[in-house]
Protein backbone atom coordinates (compact mmCIF):
# COMPACT_ATOMS: atom_id res chain seq x y z
CA UNK A 1 0.00 0.00 0.00
CA UNK A 2 1.29 3.46 -0.91
CA UNK A 3 1.75 6.06 1.77
CA UNK A 4 -1.57 7.54 2.90
CA UNK A 5 -2.39 11.13 1.93
CA UNK A 6 -3.79 11.97 5.34
CA UNK A 7 -3.09 10.33 8.65
CA UNK A 8 -4.83 11.67 11.74
CA UNK A 9 -3.62 10.13 14.99
CA UNK A 10 -5.53 10.60 18.22
CA UNK A 11 -6.36 14.24 17.48
CA UNK A 12 -7.84 16.33 20.29
CA UNK A 13 -8.89 19.91 19.79
CA UNK A 14 -11.30 22.49 21.10
CA UNK A 15 -12.31 26.10 21.39
CA UNK A 16 -11.21 28.01 24.47
CA UNK A 17 -11.85 25.57 27.32
CA UNK A 18 -14.29 23.39 25.51
CA UNK A 19 -12.94 20.08 24.26
CA UNK A 20 -14.62 19.12 20.98
CA UNK A 21 -12.45 16.47 19.32
CA UNK A 22 -11.45 13.81 21.82
CA UNK A 23 -8.99 11.58 20.08
CA UNK A 24 -9.87 11.19 16.42
CA UNK A 25 -7.85 8.78 14.30
CA UNK A 26 -8.41 8.45 10.59
CA UNK A 27 -6.29 7.42 7.62
CA UNK A 28 -7.12 8.40 4.06
CA UNK A 29 -5.26 6.75 1.20
CA UNK A 30 -4.87 7.88 -2.40
CA UNK A 31 -7.90 7.28 -4.60
CA UNK A 32 -10.23 6.95 -1.60
CA UNK A 33 -13.43 8.72 -0.68
CA UNK A 34 -14.17 8.88 3.03
CA UNK A 35 -17.40 10.09 4.56
CA UNK A 36 -17.55 11.46 8.08
CA UNK A 37 -21.07 11.44 9.42
CA UNK A 38 -22.43 12.47 12.76
CA UNK A 39 -25.18 14.29 14.58
CA UNK A 40 -25.10 18.05 15.16
CA UNK A 41 -22.41 19.09 17.60
CA UNK A 42 -20.39 15.91 17.20
CA UNK A 43 -17.33 17.83 15.97
CA UNK A 44 -17.56 17.32 12.20
CA UNK A 45 -17.01 20.93 11.25
CA UNK A 46 -14.35 21.32 13.93
CA UNK A 47 -12.44 18.49 12.30
CA UNK A 48 -12.62 20.28 8.95
CA UNK A 49 -11.61 23.60 10.51
CA UNK A 50 -8.62 22.12 12.36
CA UNK A 51 -7.41 20.35 9.24
CA UNK A 52 -7.64 23.56 7.22
CA UNK A 53 -5.95 25.57 9.99
CA UNK A 54 -8.68 27.99 10.95
CA UNK A 55 -7.68 30.35 13.81
CA UNK A 56 -9.43 30.02 17.14
CA UNK A 57 -9.07 26.26 17.58
CA UNK A 58 -6.56 24.82 20.02
CA UNK A 59 -5.06 21.46 19.24
CA UNK A 60 -4.46 19.79 22.59
CA UNK A 61 -3.16 16.42 21.47
CA UNK A 62 -2.38 14.05 18.63
CA UNK A 63 -0.73 14.51 15.26
CA UNK A 64 -1.75 14.93 11.67
CA UNK A 65 0.46 13.87 8.79
CA UNK A 66 -0.40 15.10 5.37
CA UNK A 67 1.48 14.34 2.20
CA UNK A 68 4.78 13.99 4.04
CA UNK A 69 4.28 17.06 6.25
CA UNK A 70 3.34 17.69 9.83
CA UNK A 71 0.10 19.38 8.84
CA UNK A 72 -0.43 21.22 12.12
CA UNK A 73 2.91 22.98 11.58
CA UNK A 74 1.80 24.64 8.38
CA UNK A 75 0.00 27.98 8.04
CA UNK A 76 -3.43 27.76 6.39
CA UNK A 77 -2.13 29.10 3.06
CA UNK A 78 0.76 26.62 3.12
CA UNK A 79 -1.70 23.77 3.58
CA UNK A 80 -3.70 25.08 0.63
CA UNK A 81 -0.56 25.32 -1.50
CA UNK A 82 0.21 21.72 -0.59
CA UNK A 83 -3.06 20.73 -2.19
CA UNK A 84 -5.47 20.72 0.75
CA UNK A 85 -8.80 22.19 -0.20
CA UNK A 86 -11.79 22.94 2.00
CA UNK A 87 -15.19 23.38 0.39
CA UNK A 88 -16.81 25.70 2.93
CA UNK A 89 -20.16 25.10 4.53
CA UNK A 90 -20.78 28.85 4.43
CA UNK A 91 -18.58 30.43 1.73
CA UNK A 92 -18.00 34.12 2.50
CA UNK A 93 -18.69 36.98 0.12
CA UNK A 94 -15.82 39.21 -0.95
CA UNK A 95 -17.45 42.27 -2.52
CA UNK A 96 -15.71 43.88 -5.45
CA UNK A 97 -13.26 41.02 -5.99
CA UNK A 98 -13.90 39.35 -9.32
CA UNK A 99 -14.32 35.56 -9.05
CA UNK A 100 -12.07 34.79 -11.99
CA UNK A 101 -9.36 37.09 -10.75
CA UNK A 102 -9.56 35.56 -7.30
CA UNK A 103 -9.30 32.03 -8.61
CA UNK A 104 -6.42 32.85 -10.93
CA UNK A 105 -4.48 34.38 -8.05
CA UNK A 106 -5.16 31.28 -5.94
CA UNK A 107 -4.17 28.84 -8.66
CA UNK A 108 -0.96 30.68 -9.41
CA UNK A 109 0.00 30.77 -5.73
CA UNK A 110 -0.45 27.01 -5.60
CA UNK A 111 1.44 26.46 -8.86
CA UNK A 112 4.27 28.69 -7.69
CA UNK A 113 4.57 26.74 -4.43
CA UNK A 114 4.66 23.49 -6.38
CA UNK A 115 7.35 24.72 -8.75
CA UNK A 116 5.07 24.98 -11.78
CA UNK A 117 5.00 28.02 -14.05
CA UNK A 118 2.17 30.48 -13.44
CA UNK A 119 -0.63 30.55 -15.97
CA UNK A 120 -1.15 33.71 -17.95
CA UNK A 121 -4.59 35.17 -18.53
CA UNK A 122 -5.20 33.27 -21.76
CA UNK A 123 -4.09 29.90 -20.44
CA UNK A 124 -6.17 30.42 -17.32
CA UNK A 125 -9.23 31.33 -19.32
CA UNK A 126 -8.89 28.16 -21.35
CA UNK A 127 -8.65 26.08 -18.19
CA UNK A 128 -11.70 27.78 -16.73
CA UNK A 129 -13.72 27.11 -19.88
CA UNK A 130 -12.84 23.42 -19.77
CA UNK A 131 -13.82 23.12 -16.13
CA UNK A 132 -17.05 25.00 -16.62
CA UNK A 133 -18.09 22.47 -19.23
CA UNK A 134 -17.17 19.64 -16.93
CA UNK A 135 -19.44 20.98 -14.18
CA UNK A 136 -22.20 22.38 -16.35
CA UNK A 137 -21.92 25.76 -14.69
CA UNK A 138 -23.28 29.13 -15.71
CA UNK A 139 -20.37 31.24 -16.93
CA UNK A 140 -21.97 34.37 -15.49
CA UNK A 141 -20.94 33.36 -11.99
CA UNK A 142 -17.34 33.97 -12.95
CA UNK A 143 -17.95 37.55 -13.91
CA UNK A 144 -19.39 38.38 -10.53
CA UNK A 145 -17.62 39.17 -7.28
CA UNK A 146 -16.59 36.21 -5.14
CA UNK A 147 -19.82 34.68 -3.81
CA UNK A 148 -21.49 38.10 -3.73
CA UNK A 149 -25.23 37.83 -4.11
CA UNK A 150 -24.97 34.11 -4.92
CA UNK A 151 -27.82 31.88 -3.83
CA UNK A 152 -26.96 29.06 -1.44
CA UNK A 153 -26.82 26.60 -4.32
CA UNK A 154 -24.66 28.90 -6.44
CA UNK A 155 -22.20 29.27 -3.61
CA UNK A 156 -21.82 25.51 -3.26
CA UNK A 157 -21.42 25.07 -7.00
CA UNK A 158 -18.83 27.79 -7.02
CA UNK A 159 -16.92 25.96 -4.30
CA UNK A 160 -16.87 22.78 -6.36
CA UNK A 161 -15.83 24.80 -9.39
CA UNK A 162 -12.89 26.22 -7.44
CA UNK A 163 -12.03 22.70 -6.42
CA UNK A 164 -12.08 21.63 -10.07
CA UNK A 165 -9.70 24.42 -11.05
CA UNK A 166 -7.32 24.02 -8.12
CA UNK A 167 -7.19 20.22 -8.43
CA UNK A 168 -6.46 19.48 -4.78
CA UNK A 169 -4.76 16.37 -3.51
CA UNK A 170 -7.14 16.25 -0.58
CA UNK A 171 -10.56 17.86 -0.76
CA UNK A 172 -12.56 18.27 2.42
CA UNK A 173 -16.23 18.95 1.75
CA UNK A 174 -17.83 20.45 4.84
CA UNK A 175 -21.57 19.79 4.68
CA UNK A 176 -21.61 20.68 1.03
CA UNK A 177 -25.10 19.19 0.80
CA UNK A 178 -26.66 21.49 3.37
CA UNK A 179 -29.14 23.90 1.85
CA UNK A 180 -29.12 22.23 -1.57
CA UNK A 181 -32.23 21.09 -3.40
CA UNK A 182 -32.09 17.74 -5.11
CA UNK A 183 -31.10 19.11 -8.53
CA UNK A 184 -28.28 21.16 -7.11
CA UNK A 185 -27.22 18.18 -5.06
CA UNK A 186 -26.95 16.09 -8.22
CA UNK A 187 -24.90 18.73 -10.02
CA UNK A 188 -22.56 19.17 -7.10
CA UNK A 189 -22.03 15.47 -6.51
CA UNK A 190 -21.53 14.67 -10.15
CA UNK A 191 -18.85 17.38 -10.17
CA UNK A 192 -17.19 15.84 -7.15
CA UNK A 193 -17.29 12.39 -8.74
CA UNK A 194 -15.70 13.66 -11.92
CA UNK A 195 -12.84 15.10 -9.92
CA UNK A 196 -12.02 11.82 -8.27
CA UNK A 197 -8.68 10.40 -9.38
CA UNK A 198 -6.31 7.64 -8.35
CA UNK A 199 -3.88 10.15 -6.86
CA UNK A 200 -6.24 12.32 -4.86
CA UNK A 201 -8.68 11.80 -2.03
CA UNK A 202 -11.91 13.25 -0.67
CA UNK A 203 -13.15 13.64 2.85
CA UNK A 204 -16.89 14.25 2.73
CA UNK A 205 -18.44 15.61 5.89
CA UNK A 206 -22.19 15.34 6.09
CA UNK A 207 -25.09 15.07 8.44
CA UNK A 208 -27.39 13.27 6.04
CA UNK A 209 -27.04 10.09 4.13
CA UNK A 210 -28.66 11.50 0.99
CA UNK A 211 -25.42 13.02 -0.34
CA UNK A 212 -23.96 9.52 -0.23
CA UNK A 213 -26.52 8.36 -2.76
CA UNK A 214 -24.56 10.40 -5.25
CA UNK A 215 -21.05 10.40 -3.88
CA UNK A 216 -20.22 6.79 -3.12
CA UNK A 217 -17.74 6.55 -0.25
CA UNK A 218 -15.21 3.79 0.20
CA UNK A 219 -15.37 4.26 3.95
CA UNK A 220 -17.91 5.75 6.32
CA UNK A 221 -16.89 7.00 9.76
CA UNK A 222 -19.38 7.91 12.40
CA UNK A 223 -18.30 10.76 14.63
CA UNK A 224 -20.12 11.10 17.94
CA UNK A 225 -19.11 13.44 20.74
CA UNK A 226 -15.64 14.02 19.33
CA UNK A 227 -14.78 10.37 18.70
CA UNK A 228 -15.09 8.10 15.72
CA UNK A 229 -17.31 5.39 17.14
CA UNK A 230 -17.66 3.21 14.10
CA UNK A 231 -16.11 2.75 10.69
CA UNK A 232 -17.53 0.73 7.86
CA UNK A 233 -18.31 0.59 4.17
CA UNK A 234 -21.03 2.54 2.34
CA UNK A 235 -23.71 0.28 3.79
CA UNK A 236 -23.06 1.83 7.22
CA UNK A 237 -24.48 5.09 5.94
CA UNK A 238 -27.67 3.36 4.88
CA UNK A 239 -27.96 1.68 8.23
CA UNK A 240 -27.57 5.02 9.95
CA UNK A 241 -30.23 6.54 7.75
CA UNK A 242 -32.61 3.79 8.65
CA UNK A 243 -31.94 3.55 12.36
CA UNK A 244 -30.79 7.05 13.21
CA UNK A 245 -27.81 8.16 15.30
CA UNK A 246 -29.51 6.99 18.49
CA UNK A 247 -29.02 3.42 17.41
CA UNK A 248 -25.27 3.78 17.24
CA UNK A 249 -25.15 5.65 20.53
CA UNK A 250 -27.01 2.86 22.26
CA UNK A 251 -24.86 0.21 20.63
CA UNK A 252 -21.78 2.06 21.84
CA UNK A 253 -23.13 2.33 25.35
CA UNK A 254 -23.73 -1.41 25.45
CA UNK A 255 -20.25 -2.14 24.12
CA UNK A 256 -18.72 0.08 26.75
Amino acid sequence: MSKPILEIKNLSAGVEDKQILKGVSLTVGAGEVHAVMGPNGSGKSTLAAVLAGRAGYDVTGGEVHYNGHDLLDLAPEERAREGLFLAFQYPVEIPGVNSTYFLKAALNEIRKAQGQPELDAMEFLQLVRDKIKLLDLNEDLLKRSVNEGFSGGEKKRAEIFQMAVLEPKLAILDETDSGLDIDALKVVSSGVNKLKRADNAQLVITHYQRLLNYIIPDFVHVLVDGRIVRTGGKELALELEEKGYDWILKAEAVAA
Partner: peptide, 8 residues
Amino acid sequence: FYCNQRGL
Protein backbone atom coordinates in the same frame (compact mmCIF):
# COMPACT_ATOMS: atom_id res chain seq x y z
CA PHE B 1 -9.29 32.67 6.17
CA TYR B 2 -11.25 31.96 3.02
CA CYS B 3 -8.47 33.54 0.96
CA ASN B 4 -5.78 31.74 2.99
CA GLN B 5 -7.53 28.46 2.37
CA ARG B 6 -7.23 29.09 -1.34
CA GLY B 7 -3.48 29.59 -1.05
CA LEU B 8 -3.32 33.38 -0.75
